[in-house]
Design a protein around this nucleic acid. Structure first.
Length: 426
RNA sequence: GCGGGCGUAGCUCAGCUGGUAGAGCCCCGGAUUGUGAUUCCGGCCGUCGCGGGUUCGAAUCCCGUCGCUCGCCCCA
């Protein structure tokens, strides 16, 4: 591979025909799921003013500080490729008055961009499916969102995911807890690693999340977030957990589950898996009651989740099921000049008569043998064979490719009907 | 930003201690006139990532560089 050849930008993947059926399965299933729960689709730009992201995600988060694709456009505006979907959705909902005295259940899907070092399950252009609910204060909507994701796993046949939940409380109670945490870890500086010392300044809650086993003991004795919640948040969380139990969704409370984005409050959750690599979060989200007001809207409670399509697809593939690809029903083998001349028109008539069946016509000639070989490789259920002999007699040979049934001959006039019958049986 | 692994045909890879490259898959053609998915034969496909060095000679050794990949950080 010459180094002069143009390559895709690092971390931005091409999706080839082989893997696309998995994506389509995920997207189709999600679309149906949202319809079943009364969520409406919305689409917003991939590019927003940089300020939108720094104000919502948090000025001092890694995403804003070092991961955004930011540029100045020709008019001098500072813009960024969206690193996540919520901010744009909230901006649009405010801008178009969707949150004025009304509740909204919305979803969207698309590409996100973060300039991180790629690794398994983490890419610079990645894709998420997002859903958000606005205007619901109580924990019932929290539970509905979980319920919905749990159903999505069921519909996709995914089993190896587990749900962890936590509450971050209100911004005030979180600040108070944060202070206690800084005090505690401050007293144990000697046992902390470099990363955690850095986090002690920037985001002490994230120390709880550390993967370093050497820190397990200090972290284990640290003040527990759920024990420092304000009474309202505690009540909200308890009712939320009660609803999950009532719905029969298994979960575990993980007081160390904190989220990277500043706007979260109260309920947070994450579905993770052991079937993938280090990037094990498949779907996560939480409540962000303050964000709408922070971006200039009326105070509006809100909650949402995002799932990573790449990770979900990887999970489906890891489960080892067959690729959900679609094969044509019919492959037309055309041997000889006359057959080739009449084949295209015949194929159109078949498509008129058999919408959705899939009629693929052999192109570019080739020996009889290789045409049949292509018919087989295409995955088609039957081959329709027309050579000079058949063309002269006004008939076609129908050869089933996926069963032991023998080849049969059929007049062109009745071909569509005969094919319809054959394909129905498959 | 920091570490580990790897870069040989479209794909998966072999090539021991240096002598200018191989296999399987794919694709094309053939094995009694027009019948695939099993078999057999033949054909097509590479400046061995790139640049430099050592050497009579380097895919093979050394240096650099680019790329891919896994992990850390962070996150979907």
């Amino acid at each position: 591979m010459s180094d002069r050849r143009l390559q895709a930008v690092r971390g931005m993947n091409d999706l080839l025909p082989d893997e696309l059926p998995w994506w389509q399965l995920v997207e189709r299933t999600a679309r149906e799921l949202f319809a079943d729960y009364g969520y409406q689709e919305m689409r917003v730009p991939l590019v927003e003013r940089t300020e939108l992201f720094s104000r919502s995600i948090g000025e001092h988060t890694d995403i804003v500080e070092k991961e955004m694709y930011t540029f100045e456009d020709r008019g001098g505006d500072l813009l960024s490729l969206r690193p996540e979907a919520t901010a744009g959705l909230v901006r649009a909902a405010i801008e178009h008055g969707l949150l004025h005295n009304q509740k909204q259940r919305l979803w969207t899907a698309g590409a996100m961009f973060r300039h991180e070092r790629p690794q398994a399950g983490r890419y610079r252009q990645f894709h998420q499916i997002d859903c958000e609910a606005f205007g619901f204060e109580g924990p019932d909507i929290d539970a509905e969102l979980i319920q919905m994701s749990a159903r999505l796993w069921r519909r996709l046949g995914i089993r190896d995911v587990r749900l962890r939940v936590n509450s971050l409380g209100t911004p005030e109670s979180r600040r108070a807890y944060r202070a206690r945490l800084v005090e505690y870890f401050g007293q144990h500086r000697a046992t902390l690693d470099a990363d955690s010392l850095r986090r002690l300044e920037s985001n002490p809650l994230r120390i709880l999340d550390s993967r370093n086993p050497a820190l397990a003991e200090v972290i284990g004795r640290a003040p527990v977030l759920t024990e420092h919640l304000d009474p309202d948040s505690r009540g909200h969380f308890e009712r939320f957990c009660g609803l999950l139990e009532a719905c029969g969704v298994p979960y575990e409370v993980d007081p160390r589950l904190v989220r990277g984005l500043d706007y979260y409050s109260r309920t947070v959750f994450e579905w993770s898996t052991q079937a993938l690599g280090a990037q094990d979060a498949v779907c996560s989200g939480g409540r962000y009651d303050g964000l709408v007001a922070q971006l200039g809207g009326e105070p509006t409670p809100a909650i949402g989740w995002a799932l990573g399509i790449e990770r979900l697809v990887a999970l489906l593939q890891a489960a080892g099921g067959p690729a959900p690809g679609a094969a044509p029903g019919v492959y037309m083998v055309l041997a000889g000049e006359r057959a080739e001349r009449e084949g295209l028109a015949l194929a159109e008539r078949l498509r008129d008569a058999l919408p959705g069946a899939g009629v693929q016509v052999n192109m570019g000639g080739g020996s009889f043998k290789s045409q049949l070989k292509r018919a087989d490789r295409s995955g088609a259920a039957v081959a329709v064979v027309i050579g000079d002999d058949e063309a002269a007699r006004g008939v076609a040979a129908i050869k089933p490719l996926r069963s032991d049934a023998g080849q049969q001959e059929c007049g062109i006039a009745g071909l569509a009907e005969r094919l319809a019958e054959l394909l129905r049986r498959n």
